[in-house]
């Protein structure tokens, strides 16, 4: 198929075929990171700006490095120390940077819809790197890439790519943009999705809104799942108020080795990071044989290269 979108704002708006196009592109880019010269000329002369209004380790570095591997020039903007602290609006900030001659914004912002607003007001490509509790499309894509690769579904039809697989997303669903992007993307590729965790963090309405199952019964989820995607409890979004205590949460909903004995032997464990070790997952599991957490990070590079290549490439 021909890729025509110049923005990647969320996975909700993409078709299964478009998602698979990104994943296939990423698959063909993956070997670049293994070369001794980890650079290709595809986006030579283009400028990609990281516009991060929220803190980030993995995503901002992964985007910067991905852009550099495609030979784009990169500029990193963080709100602290910028004119945002003097009261400049998002659009004014972006337009001023755009006037310096840039091609793409990778934006992370605490306000849902900030990337969409930016897309309406600039001529640049806009890639959403996380907007509040709304979506984090590249995280969703790299999670789906990792699942598709692990279960060897690369050759399947887009709508059936993950058919027959049950993916449970565990933990702080209420505050999670990763859960939303995953749910939209996984469902489009035919996977069964279960959102699981305490009722306060996994309200039934979220399941209805996303068209996926909700469960508060961890034993049921353990038995059913091929993939466990553990999410971080987002203490910075006051998630700690939604359950009595961290130890109780770990005891009832955290993944540990004892609990994983009830899971399918071939089931894998994912986590988008950063991990609260000992809360949503024990260190033994995070570093154990079922874990594909570092593959996710590795695949993130290929997926972000693909997204930049496709969106910036389509913006001529």
């Amino acid at each position: 198929m021909a890729w025509t979108r110049k923005h990647l704002l969320d996975l909700e708006e993409l078709s299964a075929a478009e998602i698979v196009e990104i994943l296939d592109t990423a698959a063909s880019f993956k070997e670049v990171s293994g070369r001794s010269v980890k650079k290709v000329p595809a986006l030579r002369g283009r400028v990609v700006v990281n516009l991060f209004f929220e803190s980030s380790t993995r995503t901002s570095n992964s985007f910067a490095l991905s852009a550099q591997r495609l030979s784009a020039d990169t500029l990193s903007f963080t709100s602290s120390g910028s004119s945002v602290s003097k009261g400049e609006t998002l659009i004014d900030t972006a337009k001023n940077i755009e006037a310096m001659g840039v091609d793409a914004f990778v934006i992370r912002h605490s306000a849902p819809g900030a990337p969409h607003l930016l897309a309406r007001h600039t001529g640049c490509s806009v890639i959403n790197a996380g907007d509040g509790c709304h979506e984090h499309p590249t995280q969703g894509l790299l999670d789906i890439f990792t699942i598709r690769e692990h279960f060897k579904r690369e050759k399947s039809e887009p709508e059936k790519a993950l058919k027959g697989l049950t993916v449970s997303i565990l933990g702080d669903i209420r505050h999670s943009r990763v859960a939303r992007s995953n749910a939209h993307g996984l469902r489009k590729l035919g996977a069964r999705v279960i959102l699981a965790g305490p009722p306060t963090l996994v309200p039934a309405a979220i399941g209805q809104a996303l068209g996926v199952e909700v469960s508060h019964d961890i034993d049921y989820v353990l038995k059913e799942s091929d993939v466990f995607n553990c999410l971080r409890i987002q203490f910075e979004r006051k998630a700690g108020r939604f359950f009595p205590g961290v130890r109780e949460y770990a005891a009832i909903y955290g993944l540990n080795e004892e609990r994983m004995k009830k899971a399918k032997p071939e089931a894998i464990i994912m986590h988008p990071g950063p991990i609260n070790r000992g809360i949503e997952i024990t260190p033994e599991l995070a570093d154990g044989t079922r874990s594909v957490i570092l593959h996710q990070v590795e695949n993130g590079m290929a997926v972000r290269m693909a997204v930049l290549y496709l969106c910036v490439g389509a913006n001529n």
Binding site: W3, A27, S28, E31, V312
Partner: peptide
């Protein structure tokens, strides 16, 4: 021609 991917396998 845009960024359309013509080959699905990487370099080996």
């Amino acid at each position: 021609r845009g960024p359309t991917l013509r080959e699905k396998s990487g370099t080996e």
